[in-house]
């Protein structure tokens, strides 16, 4: 086990403070919806994306048609297109099996944990090791907390406001990636847009905020050069 893998694992530990209460809710909701522990665990394993799991479980409980359930799940998870694009450079030189494994574990938190440490990685392999360590920690935290939530119900003491740990940890993962004023300005801009777009259903506010903000970056902050998608850089 490389030291970066271990570092990634431990970097994720504090972030699990926010993940565990969410998993507890997920597990208790799955139990209330009448899923067996097997079904709940299988959903966790195959989908591994909390927000979409909660929403689709609710729809299944309401006997919604299967295509509505699938479409809802995919729309909520469409933000992973962006994470996939952002993560692609790190997995670029890896064999296909590693690309598949690292994609499978791609979550908001594991990407955020890696991107916040970006400046410290010498090679893309370093970043990948750190990321995989973070993923393993995330995996244990998510499966453990959902299983416990399934068995014991929602166990997180509500007076501790542990759900507040989610925005706090994203904030502290965002700060290191604000390298200069330009990045800080973009973060302010997207904060503003996210409030405006928060009324959109299915967490679409998230993806649309990111797209509007990226267009803002492209139009106003990047050098004006001819852009190439394929082929060598100019």
């Amino acid at each position: 086990m490389s030291s970066l893998f271990r570092k990634g694992f431990f970097a994720m530990l504090p972030i699990t403070v926010g993940i565990i209460p969410f998993g507890a809710v997920m597990g208790s909701v799955a139990a209330e919806a009448g899923l067996s522990l097997w079904q709940s665990s299988a959903m966790n394993l195959f989908v591994f994306a909390g927000a979409s799991q909660l929403a689709t479980l609710d729809l299944m409980d309401q006997q919604a048609p299967w295509f509505v359930i699938l479409a809802t799940g995919f729309v909520i998870n469409a933000r992973f297109f962006l994470y996939s694009a952002a993560f692609a450079p790190w997995a670029k030189e890896s064999p296909t099996a590693m690309k598949m494994l690292s994609s499978f574990f791609l979550t908001d938190q594991s990407y955020a944990a890696m991107s916040s440490q970006e400046a410290h990685f010498k090679t893309s392999r370093d970043g990948l090791s750190f990321y995989l360590g973070a993923c393993l920690c995330m995996f244990f935290a998510w499966h453990g907390s959902v299983t416990l939530g399934f068995i014991f119900g929602n166990f997180a003491p509500s007076s501790w406001n542990l759900d507040f740990a989610i925005p706090l940890s994203f904030m502290s993962l965002l700060v290191p990636s604000l390298k200069n004023r330009k990045y800080a300005a973009v973060a302010l801009f997207s904060s503003f847009i996210s409030v405006l777009l928060s009324g959109l259903p299915l967490k679409l506010g998230l993806l649309s905020t990111a797209i509007v903000s990226l267009i803002f970056v492209k139009l106003f902050l990047l050098r004006k050069t001819t852009w190439k998608i394929f082929g060598s850089s100019s």
Binding site: L82, L178, Y183, S190, L197, L214
Partner: peptide, 17 residues
Amino acid sequence: ELFSYIPACLFPALIVP
């Protein structure tokens, strides 16, 4: 360079609303 802005574009939308 554009990708490097993804955290700044995405995370506030996970935090602020």
